[in-house]
Simulated scan of single mutants.
Amino acid sequence: MLIELVPGTPAGVAEEVAARAAAHEDVTAWPVRLAGRVFVVVSGDESLARVPGSPAVLARRPTPDGHWLVRRDSGVAPREVTIGGPPRPAPRAVTGGPGAAPDAPGAVTGVVVGGPRLWWAAGPCALESAEDAAETALAVRARGAHALRAGLFKTRSSPYHFSGKGGRGLETLAEVRRTAAIPVITEVCDPRDVPAVAEVADCLQVDGRHLDNRPLLAELGAQPRPVLLMRAPGASLDDWLRAAEFVLARGNRDVVLCAGAAGTPPEPGFGAIPALRERTDLPVVFDPSHSTRSAALVAPAALAAAAYGADGLLIESCLKPERMYRPGDAAHMFPPESLADLVTACERVRDSVRSLAVPR
């Protein structure tokens, strides 16, 4: 349940309402400020929660399906999310990281996801060789990429596959970000790793296998960094939106949804894009690489996603895929030299479809 308070309610009053709502030991509550509005999130048995008769209380917002903040009619979920921006202080464990002033050489510019332009990111599935990652970052940036994707913590289907460099790769990722002057997107799996990764990455990616990792989602909600939530093939739209709600309910509304494979057996789930449009304003991007598992199918999948109205693309690309530790990852890598042509074609398709749109 959500208790909406009068706009501008002081923090002390919001805390008092939360404390009174959670008077029972089986109920917890906390205040959040989102989109200029003040809410008290009530978790637990709603029949035990107390809605105080305070003049600060504006409305009670029932949440029978587990998500209200992300809904289109809530007015809370953003249509646009900016990934990147002025460099932030480097983490303590990183030397030579992104610590320059915003107008210094190598400054990283943020780009909007969900705006009129087709946003896109490219890079290797996992950050492996520092040299290869830096070269790939420069290559994709030269072709117009708005961000670099490079995983440090990989959720693999086998314990014998490369699971990423983890925390020891943060320094490399920070250096790549600074050198290429490009925002970076990387995965995080453990809530204990979130603060350190958030000091380096411009966007924190959550694999679909972690949509039920509530401690991770709650920690991401406490960070001032955009979150990219990937859909698990077997997850329903409600599962996906509830995961986004966990992030918003902790105070972070900068969430981007990433569609990909869906169903059993998994196939590209293009239909999720218009289906989400009916239910939320959150930006929706598409991953044509993981959804097809084939570099040869990336282009047709990306074009189809553009036709369905995706706000952006998350593409796997690497200059030297033959050097990747896991051959399966190399099979997904779209050639960097063809990225600009692919994105141009996707923008044309998206514009053509929009011109033919039939009013609902």
Rank of each mutant, 00 (worst) to 15 (best):
residue 316 E to W: 03
residue 243 A to V: 02
residue 147 A to V: 01
residue 48 L to E: 14
residue 330 A to G: 11
residue 39 F to R: 00
residue 99 G to W: 07
residue 338 S to A: 15
residue 226 P to A: 10
residue 243 A to G: 12
residue 69 L to Q: 07
residue 356 L to C: 07
residue 154 K to Y: 04
residue 336 P to Y: 11
residue 120 W to Q: 12
residue 94 V to S: 10
residue 238 D to P: 05
residue 211 L to V: 05
residue 227 V to I: 07
residue 284 V to G: 05
residue 3 I to V: 07
residue 191 P to C: 14
residue 183 P to Y: 10
residue 141 R to P: 00
residue 345 A to V: 00
residue 120 W to K: 06
residue 110 G to W: 05
residue 209 R to C: 09
residue 125 C to I: 11
residue 142 A to R: 14
residue 272 A to I: 11
residue 13 V to R: 13
residue 195 P to Y: 14
residue 106 G to E: 02
residue 291 S to Y: 14
residue 247 V to I: 09
residue 169 G to Q: 06
residue 297 L to H: 03
residue 140 V to M: 13
residue 241 L to C: 06
residue 299 A to S: 13
residue 351 D to C: 05
residue 210 H to R: 13
residue 139 A to F: 01
residue 127 L to V: 14
residue 141 R to H: 03
residue 212 D to I: 09
residue 204 L to C: 10
residue 10 P to Q: 07
residue 141 R to T: 08
residue 205 Q to K: 06
residue 139 A to R: 06
residue 219 E to G: 10
residue 74 S to Y: 09
residue 10 P to E: 03
residue 347 E to F: 00
residue 356 L to F: 06
residue 79 R to M: 08
residue 145 A to M: 05
residue 192 R to A: 15
residue 259 A to H: 04
residue 208 G to T: 05
residue 37 R to Q: 09
residue 246 F to G: 01
residue 184 V to H: 01
residue 130 A to I: 06
residue 223 Q to V: 15
residue 229 L to P: 12
residue 4 E to R: 15
residue 236 S to Y: 09
residue 89 P to H: 00
residue 100 A to R: 07
residue 220 L to Y: 08
residue 95 T to V: 15
residue 151 G to N: 01
residue 332 H to P: 00
residue 234 G to D: 15
residue 333 M to I: 04
residue 237 L to G: 14
residue 135 E to L: 03
residue 357 A to Q: 14
residue 262 A to Q: 09
residue 280 T to H: 00
residue 227 V to N: 03
residue 110 G to Y: 01
residue 353 V to T: 13
residue 321 P to M: 04
residue 119 W to N: 10
residue 203 C to T: 12
residue 259 A to F: 00
residue 146 H to Y: 03
residue 122 A to K: 13
residue 68 W to A: 15
residue 90 A to T: 08
residue 124 P to N: 10
residue 198 A to G: 15
residue 86 P to Y: 07
residue 114 G to M: 09
residue 283 P to F: 02
residue 263 G to Q: 04
residue 357 A to Y: 08
residue 110 G to I: 11
residue 351 D to F: 02
residue 197 V to E: 01
residue 8 G to A: 02
residue 354 R to G: 10
residue 318 C to I: 10
residue 351 D to V: 10
residue 344 T to S: 14
residue 234 G to Y: 13
residue 281 D to P: 09
residue 1 M to T: 11
residue 6 V to F: 06
residue 224 P to Q: 05
residue 304 A to V: 10
residue 207 D to F: 00
residue 143 R to A: 08
residue 80 E to D: 04
residue 303 L to R: 08
residue 226 P to H: 01
residue 63 T to P: 02
residue 62 P to Y: 05
residue 129 S to F: 11
residue 14 A to W: 05
residue 17 V to D: 13
residue 171 E to G: 15
residue 201 A to N: 06
residue 88 R to K: 12
residue 211 L to D: 11
residue 322 E to S: 11
